[in-house]
Design a protein around this nucleic acid. Structure first.
Lengths: 229, 229
DNA sequence: TGATTACAGATTGTTGACAATCTACAAACT
DNA sequence: AGTTTGTAGATTGTCAACAATCTGTAATCA
């Protein structure tokens, strides 16, 4: 077999080996929840989902247990599974923890960041500034998420990334709920982002950590302010 | 019905409502893994566990999915489920994140701690000093775990507690593995603990945070040193 | 003899069926 | 009329059987 073809089939094999129906159902439900196709509070009926995805209830139930542990759904025995609703109080808690992890990310990353990673961050920064000038929330939001996700990834600490992503997912759920209530603000945080990248470039650990922490706290304040309106 | 009896039966009802076989299996497996009855790397055969706990394979499989998400087991498709093995590199990552959360705990708690909570911490401190003098690792270790767990709980942030506990569980798994290899050291950290409580009592947020962070980093160093022997 | 293939047993992945529980609506009672 | 009780339908919890896959051993071949 030719090398290219061998690599392709090796990838296909790995796909089959890791993807049970359970993981596929889990991934699909996660996507639908985060995309807002399944709104917070919505009831997830086993048979409906099983029918939609053409599988039996077993894998669906297993996926539910995983999603429950991931904080995306809530289970009530004999009553059903519901998309998790994140209250303001919950969101405050989550933001508080996220601020702690962000500070850690800033501090660790300032000590380890690679030149190529700085280039990528600055490119993202440019795109975000462009979206901000165009006042396009739809363009800005995913870039912002990506920017912070890359920061976490660049630390090289997979445990950190996993915990960080879980928090971001839960906050995403909160944003879903506030969006549904019509409250949305344009996050004017490009200045803060630029300062963070500068501190990282200077390898100033304490400053980068502090900036990241404050950025998270201010994100929370921005969302609160938007809710007041 | 008498009030006392009503309360008791209400508790019993709640027990039945929340405890499906899946959650019971999950809890029992978690207990056995953390207690070391199931060693890291051990294979968990569905039918064996189902037979031992007198349930069918369904609830066992669901519990597996939850434990997988909790980081306590690892699943290989068509091969089985294994108790997670935490490598030195994994443990380093986890300690790094734990240090970040500990710093956050110290900072938050210094601003919020209640007098009664300080009393409880000082009582724990006394017991730990007693165990340290007696050089009893078996007495010291659970007290140490409890001390840190209470610190997390006292912040009142349930999200923080959940993430913290997950990290501690994973580190517990690492300790299991090193214990099996005969490496164990007596953690001489009573001095650090006392300093932390003092900083909390003085409501010195920055100091408490810094002490907590350094304490976690030094715990890692101690475990590394023990491994070298 | 060493490597490869074929097979048997064991284990996991998935499904469908049955039992237990809940929800909603209608009938009966005060 | 309003509340309670009873019943039917729907949904979840659990189980057992079947299909697919893996592992180890024995037979086969160079």
């Amino acid at each position: 077999m030719a090398p290219a073809s061998a690599a392709a089939s090796s990838a296909a094999i790995e796909l089959l080996q890791s993807h049970s129906l359970t993981t596929l159902v889990q991934r699909e439900l996660e996507r639908r929840i985060l995309a807002g196709e399944l709104e917070p509070g919505a009831k997830l009926t086993e048979e409906d989902i099983a029918g939609t995805l053409n599988v039996s209830r077993g894998p669906v139930r297993e996926a539910f247990r995983a999603l429950e542990q991931a904080g995306l759904v809530r289970t009530e025995k004999n009553r059903g599974v519901f998309v998790r609703q994140v209250s303001v109080e919950d969101a405050d808690e989550i933001y508080e923890v996220r601020a702690g992890l962000d500070e850690l990310i800033g501090r660790l990353l300032a000590a380890r960041i690679q030149p190529g990673q700085l280039v990528e961050l600055r490119e993202l920064l440019k795109k975000m500034q462009k979206a901000a000038r165009a006042k396009s929330v739809d363009a800005y939001y995913p870039l912002n998420v990506r920017f912070h996700d890359r920061l976490a990834e660049f630390t090289g600490n997979r445990t950190l990334v996993a915990h960080y992503r879980r928090l971001v997912n839960e906050l995403h759920l909160y944003r879903r709920e506030t969006l549904a209530r019509g409250a949305d603000s344009f996050p004017i945080s490009t200045r803060e982002h630029a300062e963070i990248v500068d501190a990282l470039a200077r390898r100033d650990c304490d400053r980068a950590g502090k900036l990241m922490y404050e950025h998270a706290i201010e994100s929370r304040a921005r969302l609160h302010a938007a809710l007041e309106k």
